[in-house]
């Protein structure tokens, strides 16, 4: 979906003068035409960049739909291009500010972006971000990198109400889950948002419906199953397994073998079958189909189509912690920790 940015204005700034420069920018924009400064949240986006890499702070980012998310959920975006590994505490080496305006001339609204290039010790990162977040707005941290390769900066996560990530980017599911484990064990709850987990919602709902509609049998279990997944969707498969494990611990053996296999080719993303319950669920890009050996017709439900930006924006608007995801990650964490 094309980004409906009406105007994009960037200016160089310095870490010390960001607020003043933003205020001046808005005044200048308002002089050109009426514009409403829209602010629903703080959205901190972390991107790891090698120390020597030259970065144009004002350039759009190819693989992260920042502008579109801003349009859907107007936020103060703080883009942190950070080189990890530095030991020295130092100020960001470059800063830029921008304002994107959307909408027709008579109903123009705009959002602001702050882009920073930092190469400092991680301990000093919060002092950079904290002064830029607006305290009366919810703060979300969008970890746009593969966190199975490098765990998120704990001090940044602690500042946020939400941590948004996408486990589909993970190269190693086990490492990804274990990177999140400290957040699950901490005293302070951070609302975890996995965009991949969101894709699983129609499958979980369909299975719930199927189980609820089935003729009750005393020994019905969802154990001894098999999960076949499309290549690249192993994280999704593991999330499903973790969900089942977290919800059925009292009635099923959590160590009951769930066979996980990759199924190349075909349109199906995930197929789950349980020999005990005679249920098979298949999810593709368009729908979820749950069939059983009962005489009833398969249950079919549509899978919502949404862009990554729409998914992120929708999650940013939801401030209620996802208990299900938390339990799922806890179950997976226990499983992976025990080898």
């Amino acid at each position: 979906m094309a980004t409906a940015v009406a105007d994009r204005t960037w200016r160089d700034s310095s870490p010390e003068t960001i607020e003043a420069d933003l205020a001046a920018l808005w005044i200048d924009l308002a002089r050109q035409a009426p514009v409403v400064r829209a602010l629903m949240a703080n959205l901190v986006i972390f991107r790891e960049r090698p120390a020597g890499e030259r970065i144009d702070l004002s350039a759009p980012i190819d693989d992260v739909p920042v502008d579109e998310v801003s349009r859907l959920h107007p936020s103060r975006v703080i883009l942190l291009h950070h080189a990890r590994g530095a030991r020295e505490a130092r100020s960001p080496i470059a800063a830029a500010i921008g304002a994107f305006t959307f909408g027709p001339p008579r109903a123009r609204y705009g959002v602001e972006q702050i882009a920073l290039r930092s190469t400092c010790a991680e301990a000093s990162l919060p002092s950079i971000v904290r002064r830029l977040t607006l305290g009366d707005l919810p703060t979300s941290l969008w970890w746009a990198d593969d966190l199975s390769q490098a765990a998120p900066v704990a001090a940044l996560v602690a500042m946020a109400r939400q941590l948004v990530y996408d486990s589909r980017r993970w190269h190693d599911v086990r490492e990804g889950v274990l990177a999140l484990a400290p957040l699950l064990a901490g005293e302070r709850e951070t609302d975890l948002v996995d965009l991949n987990w969101r894709r699983l919602t129609p499958l979980r709902q369909a299975i719930l419906h199927a189980v609820g509609s089935a003729r009750p049998t005393a020994d019905m279990k969802l154990a001894g199953g098999r999960i076949r997944h499309r290549p690249g969707d192993d994280a999704l498969a593991w999330l499903f397994a973790g969900w089942l494990s977290s919800r059925l611990e009292s009635t099923s053996d959590p160590r009951a073998p769930l066979l996980m296999e990759e199924a190349p080719g075909g349109d199906d993303i995930l197929t789950v079958s349980f020999s005990d319950a005679f249920i098979t669920a298949t999810m593709n890009e368009h729908r979820v189909i749950v069939s059983s050996q009962d005489d009833v017709a398969p249950f079919v439900t549509a899978a919502p189509r949404e862009t990554e930006a729409e998914a992120v924006a929708s999650e940013l608007r939801s401030l209620t912690p996802d208990v299900c995801l938390r339990d799922t990650l806890l179950a997976l964490s226990r499983r992976f920790s025990s080898g």
Binding site: P15, E16, A89, R90, S91, P92, S118, C120, A123, S124, L125, P126, S127, I128, R131
Partner: peptide
């Protein structure tokens, strides 16, 4: 001791 805008 601490940090201000990233600097010690």
């Amino acid at each position: 001791a601490g940090y201000e805008i990233g600097a010690a």
